[in-house]
């Protein structure tokens, strides 16, 4: 069963993630008075990209390895997630820190691939991506640490449950911080600065095309879904031990709702500039720190 949980989780994310992008695009289109592509369009995009030629701007293996590692690390993080309140069989050799570092590894691979391409636009994007990771990964970490502080364990089940056990001041503060940071986690306006198409042409990905780019796109989709999942599982606490199907259904509905929110915010804001965003992130960091402090004090 526990082995199956890993597979179910992986399949659940792999299958649903592109659909969520479809939802995002549809809603954005509607806000912009457009029809928008069909909901299944992202699947077609991925398939199309897989069939294209792979262009390698660097000519060396690091460039080739980066997309593989990016997808693998995000999938690794997903493989660790509990399913329906039950820990996966990897729980005995992994914990919160593993999860956080796997996510960082995902970002790291994008950077390495970008720098490998040698394109100045990719380098600017990489520089921005890294700054975003530096400033925002701690917000994710602190959300989970709030759970650690409550649960006294780094196990993922206890941590996700821990976040919402005490709905006090710290819980609501952290929830607000996370919701704002979510926009950056999923790289939507106002925080899609590392990709900023009109300035640096999708930044880190500028040299990637075809299947390599498909992997990056997939990674991005999975990451978006992951961060939304974390909000649903952590703050809303719908883990429903035992009933996998029901749990998955409720999860899906809530994640969809969250994506609607993300799309609406994304469609109604312009993009920040990096220096402005950094100040913003700084404030988020302090608030998250405050929330953890309150959490330790039991509020």
């Amino acid at each position: 069963m526990k082995v199956a949980a890993v597979v179910i989780n992986l399949l659940y994310f792999l299958l649903l993630a592109p659909f969520l992008e479809g939802v995002m695009r549809k809603i954005t289109a509607r806000i912009q008075s457009r029809q928008g592509p069909p909901l299944y369009q992202p699947y077609l995009d991925l398939l199309k990209l897989l069939g294209k030629e792979n262009l390698n701007a660097a000519g060396h293996p690091v460039f080739r390895l980066a997309p593989l590692l990016a997808l693998a690390s995000v999938l690794s993080a997903i493989a660790l997630l509990p399913l329906a309140g039950q820990s996966s069989f990897l729980a005995h050799s992994s914990d919160l820190m593993t999860l956080i570092y796997f996510l960082t590894l995902g970002g790291f691979s994008i950077l390495v691939g970008a720098l490998a391409s040698g394109n100045p636009f990719a380098s600017v994007g990489a520089s921005r991506e890294m700054m975003t990771i530096i400033m925002l990964e701690p917000v994710l970490a602190m959300t989970l640490i709030l759970g650690v502080v409550r649960a006294g364990s780094l196990g993922l089940v206890s941590v996700t449950e821990g976040v919402s056990t005490n709905r006090g001041l710290s819980y609501f503060l952290m929830m607000a911080v996370y919701l704002v940071a979510l926009q950056a986690f999923v790289s939507r306006q106002p925080f899609d600065i590392p990709e900023a198409e009109v300035e640096i042409l999708e930044g880190p990905y500028v040299e990637y095309s075809g299947p390599n780019y498909a992997l990056f796109r997939y990674t991005l989709n999975l990451k978006r879904m992951f961060y939304s999942w974390l909000f649903v599982a952590g703050f809303l606490g719908f883990m429903l031990p035992g009933n996998i199907i029901l749990c998955l259904v409720i999860q899906t509905v809530l994640i969809l709702a969250l994506f609607v929110l993300i799309s609406v915010i994304g469609a109604t804001h312009p993009r920040f500039r990096m220096d402005q965003a950094l100040k913003f992130y700084g404030i988020l960091l302090l608030l998250a720190l405050l929330a953890v402090g309150l959490g330790v004090r039991g509020w």
């Binding site: 897989l50 069939g51 294209k52 030629e53 792979n54 262009l55 390698n56 701007a57 660097a58 000519g59 080739r64 997309p67 593989l68 590692l69 997808l71 693998a72 690390s73 999938l75 690794s76 493989a79 391409s117 040698g118 394109n119 500028v206 040299e207 075809g210 299947p211 390599n212 498909a214 992997l215 997939y218």
Partner: peptide, 25 residues
Amino acid sequence: LLVLTFLARLVRQSAGAKETVVPAW
């Protein structure tokens, strides 16, 4: 990581894409 990297590689190769080395654009 290795298992999933292998999986990612399978996905990448699924349509048998060829690689061409090009100058940076």
